[in-house]
Structures are given as C-alpha cells and as structure tokens.
Design a protein around this nucleic acid. Structure first.
Lengths: 112, 112
DNA sequence: GGTAGTACATACAAAAAAGTAAGTGTGAGA
DNA sequence: TCTCACACTTACTTTTTTGTATGTACTACC
C-alpha cells in the first residue's frame, strides 16, 4: 500500500457492497444456501421488495447465485459463489470490529 | 461466530462507516494528519459540503479528531484516533479485495 | 370457488444522501 | 480599500435508496 492512489480498491468493494443491506445479506449467506424467506428473517428489518432488488444486484456482480428447484410452491435458494466467498471473508474483520465495539458505538450515538 | 444473530457486529460497523464516502475518507487518513483540502484532493469526487459533513460525523463517533492550529489563514488538520485506527485496520481486507478484483468487477459492471 | 405457500412484480411515496451555488469569517499583505 | 487563503455555513435541488401497498403466477388441497 505505498501508492495510495493506484492500489486502493475500496471504491471497487463499495461499488459491489454499497448500501444499507448488502453487507448484511452477504454475511448471512455465509452459512450455506438459504431460501428467500429465510434470508429475509435473518436480515432483520428489510422489506421483501428491497431484498429482491439487492439479491438481484448481488447476482449481477457474480457474488451470489440463485437456484430454482422448479417446484410448486416455488422453492428457490440463494448462495454465495466462490467469488462471493472471498468477499465475505474480507467482511469478517469489519464484522468483528463491530462486535467488539458495539457498546462503545452505542453509547457514542446516544449522546449525539 | 457460532450464533450469527448475537455476534454479528456488521450493523455497528455500518452505522459508523455507512454511506458513499466514509470508508474512503478513513482510508486516506491512514497515513497521518491531513489538511482539509488535502483530504478533499485524495478523496476524488467528493464535494466540500459533503466532506465537511462526513468529517463531522466521523468525529462524532470518535474515530477522527480535528486539530485547529489557531492561525490565519486557518490551518486545520484531521487525523484518526486510536479507535479510528482499529477501524481502518478492519477495512484493509476489503480494500485489498477490491484491488485484487478491480478488473473482474469492472467487466461485470460494464455488461450489466 | 376459495385458501395456502412461495417468490416474486409493479406503482407510487417517503426518506436519506449527495450535489450545486452562494456566502461568511479571520487576519495578512498590497 | 481590495484580494487572498483556508475552512467552513446555508439554502435549495437532485439523485438514490428504501418503504408501503397491491397484485401475479403456479400448483395443491378443501
């Protein structure tokens, strides 16, 4: 990381996971394929509409894949691609940072 | 990370660095204190107004500190707090991921 | 026919974030 | 007096993201 300008890939990562929900969606798909409704349950607070949208965008950049089991009622699941797995791996430190500092951040935000 | 619900701190991290610009601002302050105009130069594309706003928010959560040299013309610099340094450390993997996958993501986004 | 389960699609609205333009304050120097 | 450098502030606008409500498609079952 000597030449900050030419090596900082944060703009790329942010292009892929930018927004309120994408990091959380990716994180929850870490544990293997998940049904639509299950993802929605895990990512608390997200609307169906936004979840669909975000899943579609994540698929478009190749980090998620959708598997349709071709049955009725519909049975569809979403999972990380291998590429997506590399991205989630890069998210773990941020997740851990948040866990470690949850209390501190909470107290700061309350006084703001 | 066994209990995904209770240990995932991504919501906390996102509360601190959410938005288009904050990760990039933090990243560029890694190398030591920087003047306002310098930060603006480094974070390409950001408007003065938004930079000020974001700096203020980052200070409010304790990851940045502002030092006014009390002179005219004004001379002010911004730097990471030790707390902020822990956060930037957690951002590095994401930065590296982006660097490694810049070409791949670029080609995907062009075809979308 | 109605109901159920599941994963969507569509239309419109609201909220949040970012952007554009103009202005301010402070001394220092011409 | 005017101009400059620097770091802001304010008012308004535009863009983006998220949210609310309703509807669709497909079978299966009562």
């Amino acid at each position: 990381m000597n030449d900050v300008q030419s090596t900082c890939g944060l703009d790329v990562s942010l292009a892929v996971i930018g927004g309120k929900w994408k990091p959380l969606i990716l994180y929850h798909l870490q544990g293997g394929p998940k049904r639509f409704a299950e993802v929605r349950r895990l990512v608390k607070g997200i609307s169906e509409k936004v979840l669909i949208q975000q899943l579609r965008e994540l698929m478009a950049v190749g980090v998620l894949i959708r598997h349709d089991h071709q049955q009725v009622p519909p049975m569809v699941d979403y999972s990380l691609t291998p590429f997506g797995e590399t991205l989630v791996r890069a998210l773990i430190p941020l997740c851990e940072w948040g866990t470690l500092n949850r209390q501190h951040v909470a107290s700061v935000l309350l006084t703001a």
